[in-house]
């Protein structure tokens, strides 16, 4: 019974993890309270958006993964910072569009040139990074101050970033679980051959998943650029590991076909608590990375064996 409930509500794991880490931080720092929750969820924003994007791509199955995410984020942060000083909405729209185009390129190369997703996104990631390196000196990197104050405003105690995350997560939940596209994406991820015979346009589904993922990375870039006060070349790399970890700990099946928006959100929160904890515990960067890496491998061992049992 408990096992069944655990299988059904996989977000319980990251939820428990978050609560545990919350307590641990309290013990280490001597400070308890809601503020910690608010600040952690605010800091979780960027990894969360990337993790959701990763979840969509991975759900497409067949080893699909997007390794270019953090570079898309960086590029879009530059684009938005540059254009927002002309017009806020223009900057936002352009950044999301650029993100979506990067994703589209990934999908098209993956599907039509039949290059494995991993290699495709590895390659495009470096190309995007090069674009960043070339374009960066010519771009304005300081964000629009109006937008920054909007981002940093509060809504009943919640940061505006958290509000945006919740809205995005809700929209995604509707898309993935309530629409035709969502169903078809999950079907494709479970069994591409069967999906083809069911009449699903598999190519479209996968390319769209990459595009949507890219757009989300673009949005993350916009917010991140504004939040940390400007774009810089290496800004995306911090979020790489937390986002991958959050995507998988939240209940995304590495083999595809299964996603969990709530789980991934809580997973990102947990990773954010984790970072705060590692900082609060005053561990050296080396130990922090070590613990993070070991943690990720352990999560994978646990979660993958779970899903294989179910078969």
């Amino acid at each position: 019974m408990i096992k069944k409930a655990l299988n059904q509500y996989e977000f319980i794991w990251p939820l428990l993890g978050s609560v545990l880490l919350w307590g641990l931080i309290g013990i280490v720092s001597g400070k308890f309270g809601m503020n910690l929750l608010f600040s952690s969820s605010k800091l979780a924003t960027f990894a969360l958006l990337l993790a959701l994007a990763q979840m969509i791509v991975v759900t497409g199955g067949d080893g699909a993964i997007d390794l270019s995410q953090t570079y898309i984020l960086t590029l879009c942060a530059y684009v938005s910072s540059h254009l927002m000083n002309t017009n806020i909405l223009l900057g936002l729209a352009a950044a999301v569009l650029v993100g979506a185009l990067c994703g589209l390129a990934n999908g098209v190369i993956n599907i039509y040139l039949k290059v494995p997703a991993m290699i495709t996104t590895l390659a495009t990631g470096y190309i995007i990074f090069t674009v960043v390196l070339l374009a960066a000196p010519k771009m304005k990197t300081l964000p629009n101050s109006e937008f920054v104050s909007f981002i940093n405003s509060n809504f009943h105690g919640f940061s505006m970033l958290t509000v945006i995350c919740i809205i995005v997560a809700l929209l995604l939940a509707v898309l993935l679980y309530k629409t035709k596209y969502g169903k078809q994406l999950h079907a494709t991820g479970q069994n591409r051959t069967a999906a083809k015979y069911t009449g699903i346009n598999v190519n479209f589904i996968i390319v769209a998943a990459f595009t949507l993922g890219g757009a989300l990375c673009g949005l993350a870039g916009v917010l991140c650029g504004a939040f940390i006060g400007g774009a810089f070349q290496d800004m995306g790399s911090t979020y790489f590991l937390p986002s991958i970890a959050a995507a998988f700990v939240g209940g995304t099946a590495a083999s595809g076909g299964k996603s969990n928006v709530a789980g991934v959100c809580l997973g990102s929160l947990m990773m954010s608590f984790m970072t705060t904890f590692l900082n609060a515990a005053r561990l050296s960067p080396g130990f922090q990375k070590l613990i993070l890496g070991a943690f990720l491998v352990l999560i994978l061992v646990a979660s993958v064996s779970n899903s294989s049992k179910k078969k």
Partner: peptide, 14 residues
């Protein structure tokens, strides 16, 4: 991918 952070962690410790 996960293991690379273990390598990096050890490298940073040393």
């Amino acid at each position: 991918l996960g293991a690379q952070f273990i390598w990096l962690g050890f490298a940073l410790i040393f």
